[in-house]
Design a protein around this nucleic acid. Sequence first.
DNA 1: AACGAAACCTGCGCGC
DNA 2: TGCGCGCAGGTTTCGT
Length: 271
Amino acid sequence: MPELPEVKTVVKDLNSEIKNLKIVDVKVNLEKMIKDVSISEFKNFLKNETIKEVENYGKHIIFKLTNNKNLLSHLRMTGKYFTSNKNRNNLKHDHVIFKLDKKVLYYNDSRKFGTFHIKKDSDLLNTNPLNKVGKEPDKIDAKVLFKQTKNKTIPVKTFLLDQSYIAGLGNIYACEALYFAKIDPFRKVNSLKISELEEILKYSSKVMNKATELGGSSVDSYARLNGVSGGYQTHLKVYGKAGESCEVCKTKIKKEIINQRMTYFCPTCQK
DNA sequence: AACGAAACCTGCGCGC
DNA sequence: TGCGCGCAGGTTTCGT
């Protein structure tokens, strides 16, 4: 489901729903989602701590807890949070349930790819998984990025999806950013000039900031807490638009698979 | 070290 | 109506 705009939207909604609530109990229905520790360690770590704030670090969600503790959550493809059972019929995929003092927070994930980690503040950024996460595009120096592209013959599209170089882009926004930057997604990343990387970074930020303002993109299902749809899907220029005309040059948008991911682009505008 | 492919899962829409 | 196939917003692991 989510790329950076969707994660930021979920984080914002979580803050307004559950900030300052205390974790009273935790129920885990699917053990494999809890990484590195046993279920009882996981529960004991969280029990009786209060959620001070919810943040994102790349696509990871951090629940900042009392006593220098953190709960890390990654939604992968289909992770969703709910604080209500109204208007939903997917209860069978509620895999982790956080009983708070005033509400219940359900983690729902049909494909079961999501993960949870627990961390003390001292280990938060220097251990797996956050130690491998790069910066968001508006904080990256194109010169630094340029050095990282040396010796890399992978397509630029594949490079953009690697969260250790740039945090936040996923399949939709990588396609959109390359379209605005007029870069062919198949280009070998080591063939890009610094100026082209600058364009990619600029439009990555622009596209994702705009999408965040609109609450993310809801392409297949929804992005927000409690099933609310995002609004950016109507702004997409190429993603999911194979066969439609490019707004700029009227060429038909093409789709091709790069690194096992469907990739949409304008074969005329993107060089 | 770098890269492509497979793996992890379920659900949905499509063509037959 | 049912079945098989391909596809899905992500990341890790496995071979070469």
